[in-house]
Design a protein around this nucleic acid. Sequence first.
DNA 1: GATCTATTTTGATTTAAATCAAAACAGAGT
DNA 2: ACTCTGTTTTGATTTAAATCAAAATAGATC
Lengths: 219, 219
Amino acid sequence: MPVGLDEQEIKALDHLLNQRHRIRRGEHLHRAGLDFHSLYAVRSGFFKTYVLQEDGREQVTGFHMTGEVLGLDAISTDMHTCNAVALEDSEVCEIPFVKLEEIGRAIPSLMHHFHKIMSREIVHDRGMLLLGGMKAGERLATFLLNLSYRFAKRGYSPSDFNLRMTREEIGSYLGLKLETVSRALSRLQEDGLIDVNSKHIRLTDIGRLRRQTGNSFCE
Amino acid sequence: MPVGLDEQEIKALDHLLNQRHRIRRGEHLHRAGLDFHSLYAVRSGFFKTYVLQEDGREQVTGFHMTGEVLGLDAISTDMHTCNAVALEDSEVCEIPFVKLEEIGRAIPSLMHHFHKIMSREIVHDRGMLLLGGMKAGERLATFLLNLSYRFAKRGYSPSDFNLRMTREEIGSYLGLKLETVSRALSRLQEDGLIDVNSKHIRLTDIGRLRRQTGNSFCE
DNA sequence: GATCTATTTTGATTTAAATCAAAACAGAGT
DNA sequence: ACTCTGTTTTGATTTAAATCAAAATAGATC
């Protein structure tokens, strides 16, 4: 991403990005309460982040795919505030945060890029507030379009993909119960906007789906 | 906040923080779509950020008080993604972002501090997701406790304050209608957890109020 | 202080989603 | 192929919040 590096800088960057880890489906990348040392860039696979409420309920806070960065929330307190678990076999690149700040000082464009990543996270999270005013079907449509957008950006089909998460996890993320998620999906199918086959989704009318959301962010 | 600066650095910082602006109640600090150049630190007063949906509805995305930083969302696209309006006469400090990155390179602790601020924003926004699973009364309790926490941190009473926003704005932020907000407040009063006098709020039983939220973040 | 407007409260009714319950289905392991 | 378990769908009922409506209150302006 940053260009025009000298040999020294390339070596530093290389070292920064050279710690790969395989995380198998079901394994945790980090847990709430643990000391923060590194960010993790998802190289491949799919993650869910969540927090455990006092009553034991699990609240899903996000889904994360290739190219996205995990752990940004932990910078503020030097402690992870959520759990991150792989929903499929995945690979991450560990980025020690102290080193990132160090190298960022030498390579301003890298630092700036990092700031954009953090900011994008804020925009995305804030966009979730828009769900507050929406009905179940609109929330689902927004969710599917957001996934579609992110898949497309990575070169996958924007209209044909498999959900890695359960209806319950979707519901938790969107503030709905799993039965409501299921019903909303069935409804969107009846209306001819999508095809649902358990975890496999086909968006058959993206234009109408987008109108369905009332408006809103598809990122 | 950062310590041990030499004269050069102090001068740079001074220049960075020297652009004050008065914003009167009702005036906008920035609007969605405008080019991004500067962050704004709230020196005094109270702001609301919001986006206008296609259907004309206003969605409130946040409330911001002294010491908080506005404009972090705009870094990602070099364009403001929301509107910021003063809910009372306010003063802000303009921080040109290019300069912040420049000076941050010279003063690592300043840069690190900035990263914590951005991260804190992510934590806060993500905490809003927890509202998804809550009932109206729980959302209101969470909201009031969060305000209380922020007032306390600034040296104001944590249990006695004036709301700067309307019931409709609270509702928009929390995903409720204004009538529901009003009813939930009345209910919390009946139950002896708070005293409501239109915009003036007194938290009479913070412990019970906290239990009321089910749990969750008061920041 | 009186008037006007915006905000807030409260009530009655409707609606969407949660809850309760059961059946259908899918995937993993034997 | 069969069983077990976890997931998903669908239906009936209850519940919380939205909506519709009107009165009460507060603030701003003259």
